[in-house]
Amino acid sequence: MQVAITVNGQTYERDVEPRLLLVHFLREVLDLTGTKVGCDTSQCGSCTVHLDGVALKSCTMLAVQADGREVTTIEGLAQNGELHPMQESFWEHHGLQCGFCTPGMIMASTAFLQQNAEPTEAEIRHNLEGNICRCTGYQNIVRAVQAAANGGDG
């Protein structure tokens, strides 16, 4: 089936099998491998991207469902060589060790801050329930999101 999906501002027209998952469209068709496949069962959140500005687990949507819609991946956050403030904050606050969950953590957090610009720590933790990290124990991830919400201080 022919689809036209806009990813990070650029529209890609491709012929895809209906069963192709969005995450595989991103990784294997477009070579955007920043988005990870972790559990592949809608739980770990490492495949999180934005669909029309809303956080989505891209292992749980077909590419054909994204036809005509806009996807943002981790590769689309930095602008003109400048990291997104959330990326800066993860760097600054050591919000990662191995980095595998990081794209998903950052995409989930940036979408969340769009809805709630000044979240409490509890709200940040609640909204990261769908993202699993096996390294850091979450403390620095939460700190990084909090700092990004506070404009980088924290």
Binding site: T48, V54, A55, L56, T60, F112, N127, E129, G130
Partner: peptide, 9 residues
């Protein structure tokens, strides 16, 4: 239900 991402869709 589930998490933020699941509730969104």
């Amino acid at each position: 239900i589930g998490d933020q991402q699941v509730r969104n869709f």
